[in-house]
Design a protein around this nucleic acid. Structure first.
Lengths: 230, 230
DNA sequence: GGAACAGTTCGGGTGGGGCCGAACTGTTCG
DNA sequence: CGAACAGTTCGGCCCCACCCGAACTGTTCC
């Protein structure tokens, strides 16, 4: 019945180049086709075809303006599904392909964005702290008081729309669920705007600023440092 | 970084035959290889190879006993991921390939199991009713009182183990989240044991028994009927 | 032991996916 | 207008995924 749907959707992701595109797009931003081509190391014709496949499959949306073609993930559900697929993949014994790659990997494991919320050790640490404060319950649901807490302490109100307020997201480094959904996105945005966190390098990696480490420790009653967590 | 993992895992699902296997395995049971081969309409050699691919990818586990080889999904996370992939697939305009197929599809849409919990209109209706009763909150988290309610009214205690108590699962017919996780599995099992629901036909379809319709209506304060919901 | 059964291995045919270079379209910018 | 740029279309190559039939291994059952 739904087998065809599974196969075609999975087929869209079952290619190293398209997966590399998705990996890049997980930062939640729109990438131009040439950026994606460079990122994945393929020629423009190849990139063009792959982008079309992703769009046709409904996984990506495109925005053509002028001579550029911008590609982004269709919505949060796609991002969640991709991260889940990645987390299902068996652990590799660390390719260790040079210092640069290892450093980059380490930075990503320390903290990164996952579509529009925080992931990596940073995401998990923030989630754990919010749970200890009673803002989230064991299943990562936001309690009514918790919502009040977020809006009071982190530039509320939380815009939810049709989106679920809280969602679990499982990532590939920590293998532990962390907060996604409207609340996760709100918190991530607030921390960026306050400059408690900032992008580290060109990719999805995120680092805690010195000021952020102090403020986060105060707010969440947990130790935070700029170099990883704890 | 994780692009390879995405591609290989998705690759394991990116084939009509393997997707048909997974579709079958979503009933949570272990299928023998010959059952899977018949279900998917392929020869034994072909089925054997596909099963190996799924196992190697970590999506399935196998249990060889005697001359049989039983295949089942590796865990609930795999089931969730597959259902999500299916729900991402664009809606098809109903192939309408014969009365039999349509009837079967309708039965599945009405009610079915998804791995080990309820899905389809039945699953959504039960979830909605539980939410109205305050057993679940808006994000489908089980409140402490809700857990008490379940254990009091549905043969508790709920065995949770390492598994999350409640999880949202999005299915391909209703496009709405319904209750999964340990609590979802517990409720599904309890309803089967009480014979309020039963398997309809050979697949994952589930129907409400006459007695079940009455009792569910009493328990959940919502109208239930044997022919679909409402 | 022999027959029936479940599954695997091997060889081979076939189609399609993935990649690129070259040539083309359309946009921007000076 | 012309040059530079972003992306697409086309043709062609190559390899691998997928499938099967035939033959084989190992198990069950009488």
């Amino acid at each position: 019945m739904s087998a065809e749907g599974i196969a075609t959707t999975a087929g869209a992701l079952a290619n190293g180049t398209r997966a590399a595109f998705c990996d890049a797009l997980l930062d939640g931003r729109a990438w131009s086709l040439s950026e994606l081509a460079r990122h994945a190391g393929v020629s423009m014709p190849t990139a063009s075809e792959h982008a079309t496949v992703l769009v046709q499959a409904g996984l990506c949306r495109e925005d053509r303006r002028g001579r550029s073609r911008y590609i982004e993930l269709a919505d949060e559900r796609v991002a969640a599904c991709i991260e889940e697929l990645a987390s299902l993949a068996p652990h590799r014994p660390a390719p260790a392909s040079g210092l640069k790659a290892v450093t980059k990997r380490e930075a990503l494991a320390r903290g990164r964005t996952c579509y529009d919320h925080l992931a990596g050790r940073l995401g998990v640490a923030v989630t754990d702290a919010l749970r200890n404060l009673g803002v989230l319950d064991e299943t990562l649901a936001v309690s009514p008081e918790g919502l009040g807490w977020i809006e009071r302490n982190l530039d509320g109100p939380v815009a939810t729309g049709r989106r679920p307020l809280a969602r679990q997201c499982l990532d590939w480094t920590e293998r532990r669920p962390h907060l996604a959904g409207a609340a996760g996105a709100h918190i991530c945005r607030a921390l960026f705007e306050r400059r408690w966190i900032r992008r580290a390098g060109a990719g999805r990696a995120v680092a805690v600023t010195p000021e952020g480490a102090e403020r986060l420790a105060e707010l969440l009653h947990e130790p935070f440092s700029t170099r990883g967590i704890r």
